[in-house]
């Protein structure tokens, strides 16, 4: 899959995870998927995904005004590039369901 296809696939899949809200939905954006999960801080998402073998970035991303604009403390952000695969997107989505399992 190309980067754009990975992004489209991940965007479609992540919306099946309960409580997820995507931050940044411009029609033409780079291969990044920023999101928040209701009631769960992005840092906790990041730690759990890390243990599940999925590396994402969490925090302000040096964009505090954007966080204020959306009224959120931070976001979690997955990035996709030419070397990523569909299977990795699946692993990412699977790890996200683990987050709710751990934090209840």
């Amino acid at each position: 899959m190309s980067r754009d296809e990975l992004l489209a696939y991940a965007t479609e899949q992540i919306l099946t995870v309960p409580g997820v809200r995507i931050i940044g939905t411009a029609r033409e954006k780079a291969g990044v998927l920023s999101f928040v999960m209701e009631g769960i801080h992005p840092h906790d998402i990041g730690t759990i995904l890390d243990v599940e073998g999925v590396a994402i970035r969490t925090g302000h991303h040096c964009a505090q005004p954007v966080m204020q604009r959306f009224g959120i403390p931070a976001t979690a952000r997955a990035s996709f590039a030419f070397y990523n695969t569909k299977e990795e997107v699946d692993a990412f989505i699977k790890a996200l369901s683990k987050v709710r399992e751990v934090l209840g």
Binding site: T47, I48, V51, V102, L103, G104
Partner: peptide
Amino acid sequence: MSALKELYQQVILDHNKA
């Protein structure tokens, strides 16, 4: 116990929620 369970113990989950 897994590292995650060790980190997110019941006491921590409870104090986070309430």
